[in-house]
Structure formats: C-alpha cells, structure tokens
C-alpha cells in the first residue's frame, strides 16, 4: 500500500498517518511484547490449571483443583488488605505528587532540574537497602520511635513496625517518585497562562487549579495512578520486611507458594488472579480515556 502523503499544515491528525508505516514502526515492539509478555502470561494462566507434583514440578493433565485452593479462607482478608493498601498508596502518592509537580513546573528552569535530581537521587541506593533503612527507623529502638516518644507523640509501647500502616508508609515512600515524574512531565508542558485566563474569568486560585490545571495534566495523573497502583498491588518485599505476618499482601502469598510450598500451580493461580485484578482496571481506564478522545475527534472538518 502506498503511503498517503501527509497533509501540509501544522497538525497532521493522528488517524491520517499512513497505517503501513505505523505497522512497520511498531512491529518490533509488538513482537517483543508478544514474546516476553503475552506468551509468559498465557503460560502462567495455563499452569494454574495443572496439578502440582510433590517435588515442586508440574504434573500431567488438567485440573481445576488449584483454582479451588483460591477459596482458602485466609485469602479474602489478604486480597482486601492488598486492595486497600494499594488504593490508599495511590491516593496518597497523588496527593503529594500533584502539588509537587505543580510546584516543580512553576519553579525557574534551573531549580526544576535540581528538584528533579532530588526526586531521582533515592534510586541511586538499592531498593532493598532503603527498605531496611526504614526498618531501622521504625524499629522499637529506632530513631523515629525514640523521637516520637521524646516528643510525647507515642507511648513507649507503640509498635511502629509490623503493621499495615508501616507497609503503607513505606509503599508511599517507594512509589512516590514514580508518581511525581509523569505528573511533572505533564505539568511542565502545561500552559500556565490558562490559569491566568481562568482567574481572569472569575475563578479563585483553587478553582482555577481544579478546573484548568487538573484536566490539563489528566494524562500525567492517569499514568501516575497506573504506575503506583500496579506495583503496589504486586508488592511483596515491603510487606515482607516491614509488615510481618499480620500485614501480608498477595505478593507474599505468591512468594510463599513458590519458594516455601514449591507449589507452582497455586502460585500461578494467585498470579493470574492478581494479573486479572490489574488488567481489568487498566483496560477500564484506557477505555475511559479513549472514550473521551473519541468525543474530541482531532481530524474532522478542521478548517
């Protein structure tokens, strides 16, 4: 198929670019995704329907036995905890990241780079080391605990570690940079004159922020939600180190099934459950977004 010549003019509407060229450009990443994401996912889903062998292998034939183990009475509490921890982590990250992104984008260019660097610096330290550092801080003999007691904000018996709140705190800490970056990226491209326009038309500072800035960085917010919510759902190192048995998440159970019980089908079944739990909301968000874009077709009747 001959590529259609791009229309002259400033904005070539998305839909009018040559389909053929688009395919040839996206083919490598498409194959990559199929080989390294779709195929493994299908394998994980398939193993969930296989019997386990006593030595940690995968047996012959097909069974629904493993799926039935998902009815384990311990699971609902863990699933519920996983979901609320992930939701609250995401909301908390957004509450910090949106003002932070706004502030960074409004700062002078040179300060923006400094701030960006400060957001990224924690990544230079191993993730595991940072989580252990939190464990030290929250430890009954740790710095934070002693400071709180000294200030009279906590009793000597208060347990900072090994509860869901510790998990939440450290999850927010871990995911926050991932929320800030896409929001900053969107805010940095935002035209702040629009806020002046809104103020000029009678909007209070907060109203202008809500009705112009937030819609303006919508894509950044959606990305931030996805990149915090999904890793939080699958978290297992954080609850393992600062959470303890009473704050387990699905991730811990999957790890236990794999490494302790050596029951791959059960681990697979849990993973599949988690994957579905992640994919369905993601698709939901994407469809919602697509829907809004379809309401605003870019290509028709442009004068």
């Amino acid at each position: 198929m001959a590529a259609r010549a791009p229309r002259p003019g400033p904005a070539v509407p998305e839909g009018r670019r040559s389909r053929g060229a688009e395919w040839s450009v996206t083919l490598p990443s498409f194959l990559w995704l199929v080989a390294l994401f779709v195929v493994p996912s299908v394998i994980v889903f398939a193993i969930a329907f296989k019997p386990a062998t006593p030595y940690g292998g995968i047996g012959e034939g097909w069974t629904l036995e493993t799926i039935r183990t998902l009815g384990n009475p311990n699971y609902p509490a863990i699933v519920w905890r996983t979901i609320w921890l992930s939701v609250v982590t995401t909301v908390a990250c957004l509450l910090f990241a949106v003002p932070m992104g706004y502030f960074m984008a409004r700062a002078p260019k040179r300060r923006q780079n400094t701030l960006l660097l400060m957001v990224i610096i924690p990544f230079w330290t191993s993730f595991l080391v940072r989580i252990f550092a939190w464990k030290m801080l929250l430890h009954p003999e740790g710095l934070l605990k002693r400071a709180l007691v000294a200030l009279g904000l906590a009793g000597p018996d208060t347990q900072l570690l090994y509860n869901p709140w510790a998990v939440l705190l450290v999850l927010v800490y871990t995911e926050l940079p991932f929320a800030i970056l896409p929001i900053y990226a969107a805010a940095e491209k935002f035209d702040f004159r629009l806020i002046e326009a809104a103020r000029d038309l009678g909007a209070s500072p907060f109203r202008a922020f809500r009705s112009v800035f937030l819609p303006g960085i919508r894509r950044g917010i959606v990305t931030a939600m996805l990149v915090t919510f999904i890793p939080a759902l699958g978290a297992y190192v954080v609850p393992d180190i600062v959470g303890g048995p009473s704050s387990e998440m699905i991730g811990n159970k999957i790890a236990q099934r794999t490494f302790v019980d050596r029951n791959l089908p059960e681990a697979s079944a849990l993973s599949a459950l988690l994957a579905l739990a992640v994919l369905l909301p993601t698709f939901g968000v994407l469809v919602l977004n697509r829907g809004r874009d379809l309401l605003a077709p870019k290509s028709e009747n442009s004068p």
Binding site: E196, L201, R218
Partner: peptide, 26 residues
C-alpha cells in the same frame, strides 16, 4: 475586568461552547 490574551489562552479540554460559558459556570 476581562482579558483577551495574546495567544487567546483558550482551554484546550473544553469545547468552544464550554470555553465561552466558563466564566458564567464559575
């Protein structure tokens, strides 16, 4: 006092109708 901005500063996420109605909605 209302302003016509140099690059118009129309709200890109709102339609023409919504842009014009913005001030009244506020």
């Amino acid at each position: 006092v209302n302003t016509i901005f140099q690059n118009y500063a129309l709200f890109p996420h709102l339609t023409v109708r919504q842009n014009i109605g913005f001030g009244l909605k506020i």
